[in-house]
């Protein structure tokens, strides 16, 4: 048997897993850079963007309405005993509005969007990848990245803030109905207390947060679906990991934004 004195070839820079993690990170970076590059270059996919606005925005409304309203009712009901201990139930509208506007609405809207839309995008693009539909677009000289990815990311980025504002409205409506039934507070009084409690920074920061959450959900779902492999098993994994990864990232971003907004408030 021939033997050489050559040192064994190193296949990996550090180890297979660490190398892969860095490569994946680089792939995500390239994916994000491509989204921004394609978003602002012609031709614009207006029709598909409108389709996706409908899919992400309008079709999420029933679920958002239900969950937003119930959260408003339940959170008000659960907060009442604590405030009643100090005879401060009149503070309910202020407490609820701050909780809904600052945290509940952006988070609930994002979680629902990740679950409903993110899984849908992950499965749809994953299925298109494994059945070569994405390749079919490519060989027809159609840019599948722009048509499938950019339109969906744009839709989630712009629709989640709007859905968040809608969640605020239905959440406050649920809260008002509960307060009205128990404390006989008028709608005007309720709304005055609400607007006294929340500031421009509260609303603005929630809108910005929702834009970031929406982008994260769209980007992660598209990334998982666009690069899915291994047949139908891969499609299932893409759908599942779209939701899980997006929700984890949304909570991490919430934690970071809490620090940033807290610092802004203290300035």
């Amino acid at each position: 048997m021939d033997q050489t004195n050559d040192p064994p070839r190193r296949k990996f820079l550090i180890s297979r897993k660490i190398d892969k993690a860095f490569l994946d990170l680089h792939k995500v970076y390239i994916f994000n850079a491509s989204i921004f590059r394609e978003m602002f270059s012609r031709p614009f996919e207006f029709r598909e963007v409108l389709n996706q606005f409908y899919e992400v925005g309008v079709r999420s409304l029933p679920l958002i309405t239900l969950t937003g309203f119930i959260i408003g009712v339940v959170f008000t009901n659960q907060s009442r005993p604590s405030l009643a201990t100090f005879g401060a139930t009149s503070w309910l509208p202020s407490l609820i509005s701050i909780a809904i506007v600052r945290a509940l609405a952006p988070l609930v809207t994002s979680i629902i969007t990740a679950a409903r839309v993110g899984s849908n995008i992950g499965a749809e693009l994953g299925s298109m990848r494994v059945t070569e539909q994405i390749d079919a677009m490519e060989v027809s000289a159609i840019n599948p990245f722009k048509y499938l990815v950019v339109t969906r990311v744009l839709a989630t980025t712009l629709m989640v803030p709007l859905l968040m504002l809608y969640t605020v409205l239905v959440g406050l409506l649920g809260s008002y109905m509960n307060v009205s039934a128990n404390e006989q507070t008028s709608f005007i009084t309720f709304m005055v207390k609400v607007f006294d409690a929340i500031s421009f920074l509260d609303l603005f920061s929630s809108i910005i947060k929702s834009v970031v959450f929406g982008y994260t959900i769209g980007m992660i779902s598209c990334y998982k679906g666009y690069y899915s492999s291994k047949g139908t098993e891969g499609v299932g994994k893409a759908a599942n990991s779209s939701v899980v990864t997006a929700i984890i990232l949304v909570f991490l971003e919430e934690l970071i934004s809490l620090q940033i907004i807290g610092a802004l408030r203290n300035m």
């Binding site: 059945t131 539909q133 079919a136």
Partner: peptide
């Protein structure tokens, strides 16, 4: 394509 790859 082998599996036609029609947009389903």
């Amino acid at each position: 394509f082998q599996n036609s790859a029609l947009y389903d």
